[in-house]
Design a protein around this nucleic acid. Structure first.
Lengths: 215, 215
DNA sequence: AACTTTCTAGCACAGTCGTACAAGAAAGGA
DNA sequence: TCCTTTCTTGTACGACTGTGCTAGAAAGTT
């Protein structure tokens, strides 16, 4: 047996280099050369692990999705389901450099999908996983069986999360990011209120009633 | 006076070519050559109007934002503010090939911002305009004076719209797109309920109470 | 120590990129 | 008709792209 390297570790190292290039110079700057330089590795060496550029990007994207999922799975268990859901969602918003990088990579993926059909699968995978997580949160808080109502609530929660994520990415950092989690807290509280009081609101409609502003 | 062309019309024609290339092959395929080909024009001719690639992209992006704004402004007036708001938001979601192209260009912009700082201004402009529109809708429906509560509601509505937009872009076309407008209708109805009944909900909190699922 | 296999390094290639530039075509005023 | 100015066109250049390929370094087996 000749010399062997830890292929998985090397792949992860190169994926990190991809993320760094995307963060610094955008997806357009991701080439085998820039990534190899970022990882302090020769191009031929990179291509020994990732024969094509598409494989490099595919792995980098998949690893990013996996990391986010693992981070959520390893969240310490919390008694209050509402607070637990809050922590889960906190992991999905770009509130730290790491998760911010994840989202930028994700957006770059969506933007480049027409050019790289191989990545569509990963993108759809992440989309459906997050959708399922939202549905789980709705079920956890409202104690309702799956149905059109829970599906709509889940889709709305999903939209709020993704929308807030993008806004956090674009918003003036001087504005802070507390407002985003405030909105999420509000969403979860509203859902939990249905779980606590099965008779709340008008039956027969899916509409939700915002509370009085109280000003 | 030598021969003159309608510069604005030519710029618009080239901008349309940019959008088409983005739709067909992604932002990564946008080059002076591909755009010139798409517009059936020589590269030098394109560069006579847009000396640099950055100017080409900048104009294309700005025109896209302007077109969306004009489309909304020229919306026929409707009596019911709730339905009017619904029509406005319909223009902002990728439900037609045109508005779908707009969103793809928008996402491409966000993804490429690190590489093209010139575009950040346009992106921020569109962001704030949409934010203002959401705030206007909240004011229109709830009849509340501007304040922390309306701001939070507007930010949430903004997040829902942008989140739904992205999901429509990624979702399986077989799923249809009715669910998105259903969610928007729900949001507006909930806001309108505050406007109709000033005493609704619990005072002193910003929380909103979803109605009973009614299943 | 010799051999074998993996890994690294780097050059070569055809293609595309943005941009520069020069020469010809087109069209209105003299 | 000629002249002037705008516009179009094609070519050229250096830099960069993904990929192919070869030669050598590294390390475990025998």
């Amino acid at each position: 047996m000749p010399r062997r390297i830890d292929t998985d570790a090397r792949k992860a190292q190169l994926a990190r280099a991809v993320w760094q290039v995307i963060l610094d110079r955008g997806i357009g700057a991701v080439s085998v050369r820039t990534v190899a330089d970022e990882a302090s590795v020769a191009v031929g060496s990179l291509r020994h692990v990732f024969p094509t550029r598409a494989e490099l990007l595919e792995f980098s994207a998949a690893l990013m999705v996996q990391r986010a999922r693992d981070r959520i799975r390893q969240l310490p268990p919390v008694e209050d389901p509402q607070q637990y859901a809050l922590e889960v969602i906190r992991q999905l918003l770009p509130l730290t450099p790491d998760s911010r990088a994840e989202l930028e990579v994700n957006i770059a993926l969506i933007a480049e999908t027409p050019a790289l059909p191989e990545l569509a699968g990963i993108r759809d995978d992440a989309y459906h996983q997050l959708g399922e997580a939202c549905h789980a949160v709705v079920g956890l808080l409202t104690h309702r069986p799956r149905g059109p109502w829970t599906e709509q609530q889940a889709r709305r929660l999903h939209a709020v999360i993704d929308g807030l994520a993008i806004h956090l990415l674009m918003a003036d950092p001087a504005d802070g990011d507390g407002w985003a989690m405030d909105i999420v807290r509000d969403e979860l509280a509203a859902l939990a209120r249905v779980g606590a009081d099965p008779e709340a609101g008008e039956a027969g409609t899916m509409n939700r009633a915002p509370s009085d502003p109280g000003d």
